[in-house]
Amino acid sequence: MSSKEKLLEVKNLKQHFKTGRHSTVKAVDGVSFDIYKGETFGLVGESGCGKSTTGRTIIRLYDATDGDVKFKGKDVHGKKSKTNLKEFNRKMQMIFQDPYASLNPRMTVKDIISEGLDIHGLVSTDKERTDRVHNLLETVGLNKEHANRYPHEFSGGQRQRIGIARALAVEPEFIIADEPISALDVSIQAQVVNLMKDLQKQHELTYLFIAHDLSMVKYISDRIAVMYFGKIVELADSDELYRNPLHPYTKSLLSAIPLPDPDYERNRTRIVYDPSKHDTSEEPEFREIRPNHWVLCTTKELEAYKQEINN
């Protein structure tokens, strides 16, 4: 894995929001991870853990309080010229959560999809523009008759595919998918996930997949990071994470997912996470337990985890 090219490097990213004169919310509090070219990196956690904020900060919807984000080795935060910014906007795109709020209700599907094309001047004639839009619609499994329609005429799944077409229009390399399926029905979720997988193969895309549904995340991701209160508590290959969860929070999260299997559900035992049981003798650090499996822990806990994983 490590021999692969790093596409995105996030180092010690912090995002603190002022909520009052003297109080701040540490939505993201020192998050570090790398995303390799061509992989899908899953970021999971419960509401309010800062996973969406992490995604939005990476793509510069928010200015980071502290930390570095490097995209293809270049720092993308801080002051940048307009042309550099535009270049960055093309390379990194986002798919949003709510298919009802993510499309402008006053624009036709064609105008929505071609917005990126217009901003970046990727097409010169109207004919070219229309062709490109029809092409993109086909890519996401819709047809060109849909181009002149308005978003409210589409179902949630169709809208989400329009959102994907909009992101694809500027030919990005990296897509942040911010809970792209959590607002969709089960049968539609699979459509969108399959589409995203296909597109990844065709266009060599890299995904940051943010979600709270762990079973879907495991299905789509190569590596998964678990977030809890603004910090990543565990990061590993997705199979490894599911087979050998080490951090007690990961364990509790995994044990809480209901699976569509009545027998399994009848025998399920839930593990409850109790944050007070952590070793508090020192500040926990992010440590590698075994290759590519990282856990937020203290030195004492590190030993315990190592033992646990070897048994």
């Binding site: 089960v186 539609i188 459509q191 996930v193 079973s215």
Partner: peptide, 20 residues
């Protein structure tokens, strides 16, 4: 049922119900 991943269904594609 096919459109929901289970723990052991990593390899094959999810069965999506087409359309709306």
């Amino acid at each position: 049922l096919g459109s929901m991943p289970t723990v052991d269904s990593k390899e094959d594609e999810l069965i999506a119900i087409p359309g709306t």
